[in-house]
């Protein structure tokens, strides 16, 4: 049996001293690239799928409007509502809200404001067109229909 005995056996321990560094690097990567959700969602959000997606470059120019059925139906009913920041607003409040968002931007960038419309896929076109009408009124005409990628066949 001595034939099979290994000679000059190598140490089998993998050096793990660098493992924390690797994990920390991963950790920092995720900490830097991800954004914590700032506001709680009050409406349902099942973003529709699309194929022809475009990415926007300047994130500071984007303001978000969430549209969908309220989660708390006992309090807000079942009709689709609009959420801006962390409150539900009415269609007539959009003008005020857009002006507030525009004030946050510098003067030169105000016309470039983009409204990212995060609408639930079950919303009908009625509320959407009402929103678009208000956005036209307040001259925030760049609208991004937020959607997630669909696998193309």
């Amino acid at each position: 049996m001595s034939k099979f005995k290994k000679k000059n056996k190598v140490s089998e321990n993998i050096p793990t001293s660098a493992l924390p560094d690797i994990i920390f690097m991963l950790l920092f990567f995720f900490m830097v690239t991800t954004v914590l959700r700032e506001n709680e969602m009050l409406v349902e959000q099942k973003i529709p799928q699309a194929t022809q997606l475009q990415k926007l470059e300047k994130k500071t120019l984007i303001s978000y409007l969430y549209v969908g059925k309220p989660k708390n139906t006992a309090l807000y009913g079942t009709e689709p509502r609009i959420q801006a920041n962390d409150v539900l607003i009415n269609t007539s409040d959009i003008i005020l809200w857009v002006n507030q968002e525009k004030d946050k931007l510098s003067e030169a960038e105000r016309d470039m404001i983009t409204i990212s419309l995060k609408a639930d896929r079950e919303v009908k076109m009625g509320p959407i067109s009402d929103i678009q009408f208000e956005l036209r009124e307040v001259d925030a005409r760049r609208v991004l229909y937020a959607s997630v990628g669909k696998v193309q066949n």
Partner: peptide, 12 residues
């Protein structure tokens, strides 16, 4: 959540 600002751009 990785913020994804992807979508279909439309100019009203």
């Amino acid at each position: 959540t990785i913020a994804s600002d992807k979508g279909i751009l439309n100019i009203l």
